[in-house]
């Protein structure tokens, strides 16, 4: 925010902002004394432009479509990446010396382990 001085003498003038309406942009306002021009408010183009602290959202809620924070041009969009580890079994939960067939721990699998009991040597 900036404003040019009028170059006069005395108390130098000033703007106590008391005559402006509440919550309006300063850009273009021209009250006060001894200024040559109106207030000019420009975007800095540096620093934090958009921010969301996520504090206003309900616990354990999907972010997709939520719209708090500053100054974003749209809502949060959350899509499945379709990448990454999708299934894992470390076998640690199974007892010793047990047939693997039908064991079903681990995550991300659609069924239990299947060991058809094949002898695969030709």
């Amino acid at each position: 925010m900036a404003r040019s001085s009028g170059g006069g003498y005395g108390d130098g003038g000033g703007d106590n902002f008391d005559c402006y309406a509440d919550a309006i942009p300063l850009n273009g306002l021209a009250a006060g004394t001894a200024f040559a021009t109106a207030w000019v408010d420009v975007t800095l183009f540096i620093g934090i432009q958009d921010e969301d602290t996520f504090e206003g959202y309900t616990d354990n809620t999907g972010l997709n479509g939520l719209n708090k924070g500053l100054i974003w041009a749209g809502t949060w969009v959350d899509i499945d990446l379709y990448a990454g580890m999708t299934a894992l079994d470390s076998f640690e939960t199974y007892p010793d010396d047990e047939d693997i067939n039908d064991l079903n721990d681990g995550t991300g699998f659609a069924g239990a382990w299947v060991d058809p009991g094949l002898t695969i040597s030709s």
Partner: peptide, 22 residues
């Protein structure tokens, strides 16, 4: 501790949750 699946002249398989969508 380490529990392992031990292959011994055998074939082990399991359905994936993602099906064939990859």
């Amino acid at each position: 501790n380490d529990v392992a699946a031990v292959l011994s002249n055998s074939s082990l398989c399991r359905l994936m949750s993602i099906g064939s969508n990859w």
